[in-house]
């Protein structure tokens, strides 16, 4: 009986550690990415945060109302989403589509409301200001993102929904849409200086 309990306890502990390892990794990686991002900006080339990484930082995302800032990685695949939000679509021109895990980097999206600000910095250290215009829930079984139908200057943030679900493979997605704000804020000028 004792042995069984020990086994159960250790197995549970291992599960717990594995579970906690994921957000820990997500947290620590962002610190490493900060460095890779500033290197990318100074050298104006994509810098891999660690030599064997499958992805590289492409932008910095800030939600000023929530005091959140994170480095965006290239690609929406599991390898990049583990360390930061991923850029699923977009480049120099056209709409920008970012995805993140609802339980790590993008858990803050549940507090985002229309009217909130959003800032994206590119490799040239230029900030773009956006304002959240829409928050919606879509069913990924029935809908796709048609990037041709999106406005060229819009941003989509995508994460899973509901936020507190244990099911990692649910079909619902939480989508935050933002459009650029008209006047450029003072931060922008500072960033350019």
């Amino acid at each position: 009986m004792t042995r069984f309990l020990v086994l159960l306890a250790s197995a549970s502990l291992i599960l717990l550690v594995f579970g906690l390892w994921i957000p820990f990794k997500a947290l620590v990686a962002q610190e490493l990415l900060e460095k890779a991002w500033s290197d990318s900006q100074t050298q104006q080339t994509a810098q891999r945060p660690w030599p064997w990484a499958d992805t590289w930082p492409v932008a910095k995302l800030e939600l000023p109302e929530l005091g959140v800032s994170m480095i965006v990685l290239e690609g929406g695949h599991g390898e990049s989403l583990a360390f930061g939000p991923g850029r699923v679509f977009g480049g120099e021109r056209g709409p920008l589509v970012l995805a993140g895990h609802r339980d790590t980097h993008f858990r803050h999206l549940q507090d985002v409301q229309p009217g909130y600000r959003l800032r994206v910095q590119n490799q040239n250290r230029q900030w773009r200001q956006y304002e959240v215009t829409d928050v919606g829930i879509v069913d990924s079984r029935k809908e796709v993102i048609d990037t041709r139908q999106l406005e060229d200057d819009s941003v989509l943030l995508i994460t899973c929904y509901p936020f507190d679900s244990l099911d990692a493979r649910g079909p619902l997605r939480y989508v935050v849409k933002a459009r650029p704000t008209q006047q450029k804020g003072p931060n922008n000028a500072v960033a350019i200086l």
Binding site: I22, G76, H77, G78, L81, A82, G86, V88, F89, V97, A99, G100, H101, R102, D103, T104, F106, V138, S140, E143, V144, I145, T147, I158, T159, C160, S165, D167, A168, R169, G170, R173
Partner: peptide, 8 residues
């Protein structure tokens, strides 16, 4: 694009 998988 299909919506990516965004939960761990």
């Amino acid at each position: 694009l299909r919506y990516p998988q965004t939960a761990t």
